[in-house]
Simulated assay, not measured.
Amino acid sequence: MSNDAGSGPLNEALYWAARLQSPDFDEWEAHIDWLEADSAHPALYRRASLALTSGMRVVEQLASSSVPEAANDLEAGGPPRRSRMGWWLAASGALAASITGLVLSSENAEPDLILRTAPGVTRSVSLADGTSLMLNGGTELTVKRPEERQLVLKQGEIFLRVTHDAERSFEVRVGNRIFQDVGTAFNISAEPGKVRLAVSEGAVAIDPDEGNVLVNAGEAVTINGSKMVLAKSPARTVGSWTRGSLVYANAEMVSVGSDLARSLGVPVSLSPEVARMRFTGAIPLDEPPAEALQRLADLLEARTVKTSSGWTIKRREPER
């Protein structure tokens, strides 16, 4: 590689990122050799390319204003203007600072924390700011670092007791939805096509930059696509799984079935008749799945059926 690249992997990555911008670039073999020379080189090169692109925007913004005249072009009675050379030196300095800062910040960034739980297994986590987080079974979650004030819930269910900071918002992202803390304890679950939020303390703002729907303590919202349904949710039902039982007040059985599968760690399906029912009551989670499901079936005047893949709750046939 040419000596123009300087020394050290950072300078080398910046060299290659800049050289590949040239239309007459023909050093492909040398570039590939450099990429293969160290396992860290490909990632460093990608960061350098991104930094170079971002840095060029700085120059474009400077160039969008009129370029000053040369220093010897004097206005009548006025001081000389900065030379074109001075302008380009300033632009080059801004570009170099932007590139170096972006690459170094990427190198030093702490990797995000990915948390997963198996079905039927819970996990508690304390974040850097004191926020407590509980994951239910079958959950996958990313904690964005370094500040740990943003979570991305891919699937499953979490209960949070957030340490509120008026200067640093705390938010949970589920798909394209944003749930922002307003001094809060809340429960949120994500399933294919559906998100459920219930608040026990404070409030949660949904999509604060686009309408800012506010869900207060004692309320819950179910989101299906663009449709939101707001309902009452007594505090004792919010995150009840963290206290060893599932507690419901006039809940849809479809949601109850999903919660049972997640908390018990076994697949649970419902017959069409049972899926249309609503349920009020409590289901202990410290019992074997068969007993917990039978307890629910008795309350519904239904029956449980063991299948090859899990359990099904069906309507009880009338006695003849």
Rank of each mutant, 00 (worst) to 15 (best):
N108Y: 12
E107F: 00
A76C: 05
T139A: 04
A109Q: 14
K144N: 02
R82M: 12
S132I: 07
L135T: 01
T131W: 03
A94M: 12
T117D: 12
E75A: 13
E140V: 02
L89I: 09
E140F: 01
P80N: 12
G93K: 11
K144C: 02
G101P: 00
A91T: 06
N136L: 01
L95T: 08
L115C: 07
R81C: 02
K144W: 06
M85W: 11
P80C: 04
L113I: 07
S106G: 15
L104P: 01
P79Y: 14
I99A: 12
G130S: 06
N108A: 04
A76T: 11
M134G: 02
D129H: 06
T100W: 09
T131F: 10
N72P: 02
A128K: 12
L113F: 06
G77I: 05
P119H: 13
S126V: 14
P119I: 02
D112S: 10
A109G: 00
L74F: 13
A90G: 12
S124D: 14
P79V: 06
E110P: 00
R81F: 06
G93F: 09
S83V: 02
M134I: 10
A118Q: 14
V103F: 02
R123W: 05
W87F: 15
M85S: 09
G86K: 08
A90W: 10
M85D: 14
A94T: 05
S126K: 04
G130H: 05
P111S: 05
P119Y: 10
G101M: 08
A91K: 11
G120A: 05
T100R: 14
S92I: 02
W87Q: 04
G78V: 04
T142C: 00
S126R: 14
L89G: 09
R123M: 11
L74H: 14
M134H: 14
R116A: 14
A128T: 15
S105A: 14
L89Y: 08
N136V: 01
D73V: 09
D112V: 00
S105F: 04
A128S: 07
D73Q: 11
A97Q: 11
P119K: 12
R116C: 04
P146Y: 01
T139K: 08
T142I: 00
D129R: 01
